[in-house]
């Protein structure tokens, strides 16, 4: 396989709160390959959004990265460890938007209510390229066309609250594209949308990915979205990667008990009437009450007494997948 464009190595992030230290991400490694989509899947509290924010260096002040590297263009002459840059400096600001852009779950979070769509898009275009207003206007209209907004010239003067959720998310995507990034981080981009609009936005992301050769880091809790979009999957639980691999392999033969349980607990559109779902007992613990040993062991039906509660399983390679579980036997 070719070189990754973005490589996260051994990342650990803690939040220091009044109640104590919360370990949000622990020893996480991931590789994003050019033009591919890596889906990071997990429930709330799994650390998937914190990972995205760490990559862009936009964590809150009480967050501390205790270890790890975030390598842009690893093993090339341009290799750059984002963790070594000051989080407010000129260099990281040039990377945000122009190399790595972010799409939010709720586009209203990234759009201002007080300015028109055109105003905000032109601002982004001008910050990134410094072109005069008339060129920025033309560029902004082109972006709106590219994300499939009907009647783009008229939409330039619309305010975000005048648009539907689907159109707003398209504007959010246009905004992310304004700096011509080659890496897109999408944090639950379709969670707030209807299933029909979700399908449209996923189609748009797929089209953009192909046309612009974008690398997509897709953060989601929805395995359906993963199945639609991803090339590679990383399943997270309580801040740790529990399973990684190609989407086909992970869906065809999930190795980690958590991945298996997650797949079984998904409602299915071809279910029989009143069919009960397989459940995972309990709930995801708060990251500040992380269980000792394997973080999933209190909810795991296949746990080995004495072992899973005391030591943390390391990733075991099985074919092209990796799972962090004592039950998984290594194969070539």
């Amino acid at each position: 396989m070719n070189q990754p464009i973005l490589s996260v190595k051994d990342l650990s992030v803690q939040f220091r709160l009044l109640e104590g230290t919360t370990r949000a991400v622990e020893q996480l490694s991931l590789d994003l390959f050019p033009g591919k989509c890596l889906a990071v899947v997990g429930e709330s509290g799994s650390g998937k959004s914190v990972t995205a924010r760490t990559i862009l260096r936009i964590l809150d002040r009480n967050a501390h990265v205790t270890s790890g590297e975030i390598l842009l263009d690893p093993d090339t002459p341009n290799e750059l460890d984002l963790m070594r840059l000051p989080s407010t400096g000129r260099r990281i600001r040039a990377i945000r938007g122009q190399r790595i852009a972010l799409i939010f779950q709720e586009p209203m979070a990234s759009l201002s209510m007080h300015y028109t769509v055109g105003n905000q898009l032109m601002e982004a275009v001008r910050i990134h390229s410094g072109v005069p207003r008339d060129i920025a206007f033309a560029k902004a209209v082109t972006l709106l066309v590219e994300v499939g907004i009907p009647n783009p010239a008229a939409r330039m003067s619309a305010f975000p609250f005048q648009l539907s959720g689907g159109l707003r998310q398209r504007v959010g995507i246009a905004l992310a594209l304004a700096g011509e990034p080659d890496i897109l981080i999408a944090d639950e981009p379709t969670t707030a949308l209807d299933v029909t609009t979700q399908a449209q936005v996923l189609n748009l992301l797929r089209k953009l990915q192909k046309e612009r050769n974008l690398s997509l880091l897709l953060i989601t809790h929805d395995l359906g979205v993963v199945a639609e979009m991803a090339n590679e999957v990383l399943v997270m639980y309580l801040g740790r990667a529990v399973e990684t691999g190609s989407v086909e392999r992970v869906f065809a033969s999930p190795q980690h008990p958590y991945t298996r349980a997650l797949m079984r607990s998904m409602p299915r559109i071809d279910a029989t009437p009143r069919e009960r779902l397989a459940t995972i007992g309990g709930a995801v613990p708060h990251p500040s009450n992380r269980p000792a040993g394997c973080p999933f062991h209190p909810r795991c039906e296949e746990k080995i007494d004495g072992l899973c509660s005391s030591s943390i399983p390391q990733p075991v390679r099985r074919g092209h997948n990796e799972a962090s579980c004592f039950l998984v036997q290594e194969t070539g």
Binding site: S164, T196, Q198, A199, G224, F251
Partner: peptide, 25 residues
């Protein structure tokens, strides 16, 4: 029919079906 087809397939080998629905409500 459109609502049913918009539900993600949950099977990576069946992705990318054409959605028979455009626009917003």
């Amino acid at each position: 029919e459109a609502l049913l087809s918009a539900v993600p397939s949950k099977d990576p080998t069946q992705r990318g079906r054409q959605l028979p629905l455009t626009g917003d409500i």
